[in-house]
């Protein structure tokens, strides 16, 4: 167990190092930020001064090594545009993104699992088919188009829900959150639903196929033979057994929810990290782009690592298989 965890940890570290190099090489190949930030009338001397101030005059490998050294202490340099440390800019926007992602995941779970359960219990009924049709549409619709239609319908046509921003926020432990005020909640609902739609469809499919398989198992037949009520058979015996893969998927997909928040945040002008990334790409704000990507990549690697380790605890075949060199 320990050796598996250590090996997995080493692998994660290697991936992180590789990604940091790729991100650095990639991002530092984009245009010249000096041109963008400096007054167009500035003379060559001033240009040179700005270039040196940003450390852009040094050779490439020196820039990377300097970057690695400072990045390991959490310092990604200062934003060219806002002139504040890039990491603190990201961390300041992160709560909004996390709140949106958590709320979206919650909607997907609260709506998706019951619908999937119904579709799994009655796969050939009208309701079961309707739910499956819904999930196919949910898979086909591009996130940004759904967002647009939601705005068109609920904000422009009906005027029920606001279309941009976070609304009023309340500080909880020094972190501003939207979901505790009515105004914030109305702002949160549409983007969260938009972000949730894809995961919702995924959860419906997963729960449905899991339920259908579980219903054929002997323990369900036995529970029925014992005369347990339908609610108990489904609520305890079926649900408990299909939860393991579902929880895994929810965990693994949380990272992709944060990645897809880039799109949702742009549409609903939600002031989170995704919108910051798009703005930074348009303004060639390299430190912020690099900091965002590395924060997200670290988050991903951490989630993957956690899920793998937890899984190997639950299912010994994973770590035994890895030891014999077969992989999984």
């Amino acid at each position: 167990m320990l050796s598996y965890t250590l090996r997995r940890l080493f692998q994660s570290g290697f991936v992180l190092l590789m990604m940091s190099f790729l991100v650095f090489v990639g991002v530092y190949a984009i245009g010249n930020p000096v041109e963008l930030l400096i007054n167009p009338q500035a003379d060559d001397a001033e240009r040179l001064r700005a270039t040196i101030a940003m450390g852009l005059d040094k050779p490439f490998y020196a820039q990377y090594l300097a970057f690695l050294g400072t990045a390991s202490t959490g310092d990604f340099g200062r934003s060219f545009v806002f002139n504040v440390p890039a990491l603190s800019l990201i961390l300041q926007k992160l709560p909004a993104t996390i709140e949106l992602a958590l709320f979206a995941t919650m909607i997907a779970v609260v709506v998706g699992i019951p619908l999937g359960l119904i579709a799994g219990l009655k796969p050939d009924s009208f309701v079961g088919r309707a739910i499956m049709a819904l999930s196919i549409i949910g898979f086909s619709l591009p996130t940004f188009w759904v967002g647009l239609v939601l705005i068109m319908f609920f904000s422009v046509h009906l005027g029920w829900l606001p279309s941009n921003g976070r609304g009023d926020t309340v500080d909880v432990l020094g972190i501003p959150v939207s979901f505790l005020t009515w105004d914030g909640l109305t702002h949160l609902f549409m983007p969260a639903f938009n972000l949730a739609l894809f995961k919702l469809s995924l959860l419906i499919r997963l729960t449905r196929s899991g339920t259908r398989e579980a219903l054929l198992q002997d323990y369900v037949k036995f529970a029925r033979a014992k005369g347990l009520s339908n609610t108990r058979v489904i609520g305890v015996h079926v649900l408990k057994n299909i939860m393991i893969p579902i929880v895994t998927v929810i965990g693994l997909e949380f990272g992709s929810v944060i990645a897809f928040a880039i799109v949702t945040e742009t549409i609903f002008a939600w002031p989170g990290t995704g919108k910051l990334l798009i703005d930074s790409i348009n303004q060639l704000d390299r430190p912020v782009i690099v900091a965002y990507l590395l924060v997200i990549v670290s988050l991903f690697i951490f989630i993957n690592f956690l899920v793998d380790v937890v899984y190997s605890v639950l299912d010994p075949r994973v770590r035994l298989g890895a030891q014999s060199g077969g992989g999984h």
Partner: peptide, 18 residues
């Protein structure tokens, strides 16, 4: 494996930014 552990949109975004 490494590539598939990241969402497609994130990889495409990084590449297009570059």
């Amino acid at each position: 494996d490494i590539q598939l552990s990241f969402p497609a949109i994130l990889i495409a975004l990084i590449l297009l930014a570059v």
